[in-house]
């Protein structure tokens, strides 16, 4: 059974239709890459899954998104739980200007008051999963803003892993980073995809080919083609997909 499914998902920013009927299914323990030219609606789609579009006052959504048999847009859903189960990593590393420890513990402290020992342990586990523990373990009380961009991004990944999500959404997580930091993030994600459902937006087609299991090609609010990454890159069925992959537009 799929972890996340969209059914005839439309999103309007005022009059502008940014998503024009998306039907997709995302499997557990797979990494899916969303690719497509700028403005095709990748970020918009990603932000539907954790309801971040609620922040946009003129955004209107029709259709449904099923997360483990629960309708994400339904009235009964708890936004707090939803966003803890579906975590998001942004393009710009965005740690809070607090200590590394406080950053990672932030989500944990929101819902319940856990004993300090439990928080300590979850923070350590999360930082290890995000493969940044060795670099920060002696600096947990230092301000997270003082670390390199790549380290900050992995601290942000740890911050969402600490609340035990099922799905991780990443919106161009490496596009603000140098190649070495990007490679480290990619390695981290390769580790994480064994346990999580990962959806990553990227403009870097090599990156999509390197790390994703499935790829979705979007154009102008529509899904043009989706399938296993290998197949989509080697033998695209659609002419537009093939043009995009060959750098003819985008």
């Amino acid at each position: 059974m799929s972890m996340l499914t969209t059914e005839n998902l439309h999103l309007y920013y005022g009059q502008k239709e940014a998503l024009k009927g998306i039907d997709l299914a995302f499997e557990a323990q797979t990494m899916t890459a969303l690719v497509g030219p700028s403005g095709c609606g990748k970020s918009t789609l990603l932000r539907c899954f954790n309801r971040m579009n609620d922040q946009v006052s003129n955004a209107k959504i029709t259709g449904s998104i099923w997360f483990d048999r629960e309708n994400v847009n339904g009235p009964a859903i708890s936004l707090v739980t939803l966003r803890q189960k579906i975590g998001m990593v942004f393009q710009q590393p965005n740690p809070f200007p607090f200590s590394v420890y406080d950053n990672v513990a932030y989500g944990l402290r929101l819902a319940h008051s856990l004993p300090k020992a439990v928080i300590d342990e979850r923070v350590e586990t999360a930082l290890k999963q995000a493969a940044v523990w060795d670099e920060v373990k002696d600096h947990l009380t230092e301000n997270a803003m003082g670390f390199s961009g790549g380290q900050q991004q992995r601290i942000c990944i740890a911050r969402l892993l600490a609340v035990l999500p099922k799905v991780i959404l990443l919106d161009e997580p490496t596009s603000a980073l140098d190649p070495i930091s990007s490679a480290k993030i990619e390695a981290t994600l390769m580790q994480l995809k064994r346990d999580y459902t990962i959806i990553i937006v990227t403009h870097n087609l090599q990156q999509a080919a390197r790390i994703s299991d499935r790829t979705v090609f979007m154009l102008d609010g529509n899904v043009i083609e989706s399938g296993p990454t290998q197949t989509l890159f080697m033998t695209p069925e659609n002419q537009q997909t093939s043009d995009y992959l060959n750098g003819k537009f985008g």
């Binding site: 922040q55 739980t81 966003r83 975590g87 942004f90 809070f96 200007p97 929101l110």
Partner: peptide, 15 residues
């Protein structure tokens, strides 16, 4: 304050 602080907090489930 940078707007991303708000997004980061909301995306972690904060009210």
């Amino acid at each position: 304050l940078p707007g991303y602080l708000r997004d980061a907090s909301l995306a972690l489930g904060a009210t």
